[in-house]
Design a protein around this nucleic acid. Structure first.
Lengths: 190, 190
DNA sequence: GACACGAATGGAACAATGTTCCAGAATTAT
DNA sequence: ATAATTCTGGAACATTGTTCCATTCGTGTC
């Protein structure tokens, strides 16, 4: 979304926008903020783990629905949008009974993973869009490239090529969350 | 790094560069590729877990040393640079004895986490640089902002503010990797 | 040795985009 | 009604990726 496009949609000029906003990062951060606030509120599950899953999935879906979110969340660090995600995750990790000295590691791993997947997905989507491919065409292209890799150097990647065409991003994402959750819980006993 | 700066450094014009490269993404992808290839080669540890740790730390250090890497790795998805990371991680996960149907989840979680942390760190660094802050000043600014948050809405984030000033990015990153590794290994039995 | 032809150069120009400027319109206060 | 402040919107500026093209360089040929 460019400033001129925004100005046209608002039937005004760029200058009018700059009277209300300092710069583009202001605009984007604000949009992130309201969107994430809406996404994060009323995320409750039966258990802390379930709540974390719901939160993570909410973020995943928000980033899928708004491709700019993934890219936008990468830049304003420590800012309000990130805190809006950090806080409920942290509260749930506390509720899990994780000792204080490992809470930060647990929460930071969750946040990094969520933002990492989101950013990667957003980039994939944007790449596909600029090339005029839909999702399955894009996956096909990647799978084909992977299957053509050198068999001796890239055995593992080649073995993934088939599975790639039919995989479910959302499910894989949730599996990753569960993986981290299990890792977190295994620290509780030690 | 802008094309004009690059042209000046090379004592030539932009046109000369375009004779050899298709566009900027070509240039960046190429740079990523050689850098990651160098980073990933000879990553060996005593055990698969240790090797994964070494690989991840290598990527972390490379992204710290070259801030553009984090941003660059977000865009070319499924491309060679990503595959260069995916492959050795996958091989080590295989060596861990993870059953085939959960290998993808394990590897994809690792990759997403590594890229997520890298991207976030790169963004933090860039933000700090544009504001002319060094690392400790930047952490101070974030810690101060966090400690001034509303106590009722953001208890967890506030409780992190103190710890933030003295934390070690590299160590936290490795802790996250260990978390995921433990989660991966706990799937082996089930 | 002169010439021809493709490879490579480098600087000017173009297009898109974030940003600033400013003359004026709209609104509000006195 | 007048003055001052707020707000608008379009023109202009700076930066950056990219393209164009006249020119130069190197190499093989007669």
């Amino acid at each position: 979304m460019t400033f001129r496009a925004l100005a046209e949609r608002l039937a005004t000029g760029p200058g009018a926008i700059y009277w209300h906003m300092a710069d583009k990062s202001d605009l984007v951060t604000g949009a992130c903020d309201t969107l994430i606030a809406r996404t994060v509120q009323d995320c409750v599950g039966a258990t802390p783990e379930a709540t974390i899953r719901v939160l993570a999935l909410g973020m995943f879906d928000a980033m899928s629905a708004h491709p700019w979110l993934g890219a936008a969340l990468a830049s304003p660090a420590g800012q309000l949008p990130i805190v809006r995600i950090l806080e409920p995750l942290g509260q749930q990790v506390c509720a899990l009974g994780i000792p204080e000295d490992t809470r930060w590691a647990a929460v930071s791993a969750l946040v990094s993973y969520i933002l990492g997947v989101g950013g990667q997905n957003a980039a994939n989507g944007q790449l596909a869009r600029t090339r005029g491919l839909d999702r399955s065409e894009f996956l096909d292209a990647v799978a084909t490239m992977w299957s053509q890799l050198n068999a001796r150097e890239y055995p593992f990647t080649r073995s993934l090529a088939v599975r790639l065409r039919t995989h479910d991003d959302r499910l894989d994402f949730l599996t990753g969350i569960d993986l981290i959750l299990r890792g977190i819980e295994s620290t509780r006993g030690s």
